[in-house]
Amino acid sequence: MNLDDPRAQRSRARLRTAILELVAAKDPASITMSEVAKHAGVNRATLYQHFPDVNALVTDALEETVAHVARAAALCPREAPRDDAPQPLYELFQHIAESAALYRRMLGTQGSALFAARMRERLTAELVASFQEQRRPAGFDDVPAEVHAAYLAGALIGVIATWVDDDAPAPAEETALAFWRLFRN
């Protein structure tokens, strides 16, 4: 199969959308390949051409979600004032609010350790790359960049997980600002 073929790309996009919608609604372990194919409007043979099982599809579909979070975190200008969170951070928390059911399913108390680990790994890598481009906050020269990045990634994931698991979460803007204040100190 040629992954550059527009038909293959459309099928994969439909499958990713379908699995994200299904995962937001129910436990990934209870989702069948037949259910995914039906939800995506493709036949099972097409689904199996692209993904061997539900876990592979979930991993692939969530990669863009993880990449989105990682890019937004790495784009935050470190010199922004303490009481004005950077726009990428506001946008990140707004994105998470719009997909709260998915993030709750993947990071909340009943979440996926694999997803959390993948997100932490990707966030850490993006932050290290950002630090190598001289975008590291001042005052941390005595801490290895990888350790600093892992610390920040873990903190962000912890805040996101707690926020989406809350029965009455604060607005995205408030949470972004709270995280920024913690980050800046």
Rank of each mutant, 00 (worst) to 15 (best):
L3Q: 11
L3P: 06
D4R: 03
D5L: 09
S11D: 10
R16G: 12
L20E: 06
E21S: 04
E21V: 09
V23F: 01
V23K: 01
A24V: 13
K26P: 07
K26N: 08
P28S: 11
A29H: 06
I31Q: 01
S34Q: 11
V36K: 04
A37M: 07
A40K: 06
G41F: 13
N43Y: 14
N43Q: 15
N43L: 15
R44T: 08
A45G: 08
A45F: 11
T46C: 12
L47A: 05
Q49D: 11
Q49Y: 13
P52Y: 14
D53N: 12
N55V: 10
A56S: 15
L57D: 04
L57C: 08
D60Y: 06
D60H: 09
D60M: 03
D60S: 08
D60L: 00
A61I: 02
E64F: 14
E64N: 13
A70F: 03
P77D: 12
R78T: 15
R82D: 15
D83G: 13
D83C: 09
D84H: 13
P86W: 02
E91A: 05
H95S: 01
E98T: 03
S99V: 14
A100Y: 11
A101R: 14
A101Q: 15
Y103S: 07
R104H: 13
R104C: 05
L107N: 00
L107V: 14
T109G: 07
F115Y: 04
A116S: 08
A116M: 09
A117V: 01
R118M: 07
E121Y: 04
E121P: 02
L123P: 08
T124M: 05
A125D: 07
V128K: 05
A129F: 03
S130W: 01
E133G: 10
R135S: 12
R136D: 12
R136V: 14
P137V: 14
P137T: 14
F140D: 12
D141S: 15
P144Q: 01
E146K: 13
V147Q: 05
Y151I: 15
Y151F: 15
L152Y: 08
A155E: 07
I157A: 00
T162C: 02
T162G: 08
W163H: 02
V164T: 01
D167T: 02
P169A: 01
E174G: 11
T175G: 07
A176I: 06
A178R: 03
R181G: 00
F183R: 08
F183C: 03
N185V: 09
